[in-house]
Each structure stands twice: as C-alpha cells, then as structure tokens.
C-alpha cells in the first residue's frame, strides 16, 4: 500500500489544494454536461496532460460532498458501452457556486503569482 501511494504522488507530481477538486469537477460538468465518475476522472487527467491523477478515494467523496450541497445532481443512465452508470450534472446552485469559486481562484492565484513574481534573493 505504502509503495503504491508513493508511486502515485510521484506520478501526479502535485497535491490537490483543498477545495480545488470541487472547482474542477464543477467546471468540467458545466463545460461538458452530464458525465459519470469515470468520465470526470478521465477528462481531468486528459486536460492536465496526465499530471493530475485522481484516485477514487478522492473523487467519489468529492462527488458525494457536492451532491449533498446541492451543487450537482445525479441520475442513473446508460454509458457508451451500454452499462448502467451514475451520471452527474451541474445544478443552478452549482453554477452560481462555480462562478464564485472561479472568482476566488482568480483572486488567490493572482496574489500567489504576484508573490512568486518577486525575484528570490
């Protein structure tokens, strides 16, 4: 177990900042419409050029959390290969939330960027 964990960290190369996963999931669902968990994971990995690797233990709790807050909804449907799968989609509340999160992120990242822009002594 231990080894596998280390392996994964090395491969992803980055740790998720708390809360950013929520933002990414919301954004993905807003941009691409209803998706199942696997699709979300794959999509995030592709977009990040495989830098971001989601293990289930991170993704599914996040989906549960977002559902409970009412930001995403879920429905059982049929996948491309004709299997039953749970599809998540963003709700109106979720869109509002996404807007706010996006704002926050921009603000935070610009601050961080500004700090980092100062030459290291």
């Amino acid at each position: 177990m231990e080894e596998a964990g280390e392996d994964m960290t090395r491969k992803t190369g980055m740790e998720m900042i708390q809360g950013t996963l929520d933002l990414l999931v919301l954004q993905t669902l807003a941009a691409l419409g209803p998706m199942h968990g696997y699709g979300i994971a794959r999509r995030l990995e592709q977009v990040s050029d495989e830098v971001l690797s989601l293990n289930q233990g991170t993704l599914y709790p996040a989906l549960t959390r977002l559902s409970h807050r009412g930001w995403i909804g879920s429905e059982w449907g049929t996948s491309d290969n004709n299997r039953r799968a749970k599809f998540y989609s963003i709700t109106d509340a979720g869109r509002k939330r996404l807007e706010r999160e996006r704002e926050d992120w921009r603000r935070v990242s610009s601050v961080v960027n500004r700090v980092l822009a100062e030459p290291a002594s």
Binding site: Q56, G57, P61
Partner: peptide, 17 residues
C-alpha cells in the same frame, strides 16, 4: 493499483455521505 483500496475508498465516501 491505480485506484487504491476499494474498502478505503468506500470508507472515505461514507465519511462524506
């Protein structure tokens, strides 16, 4: 390997559910 232990995943989902 990629996904991690199934029981652990379930446990963390339960924690959030």
């Amino acid at each position: 390997l990629r996904l991690g232990g199934e029981e652990q995943v379930k446990e963390s989902v339960r924690d959030d559910r």
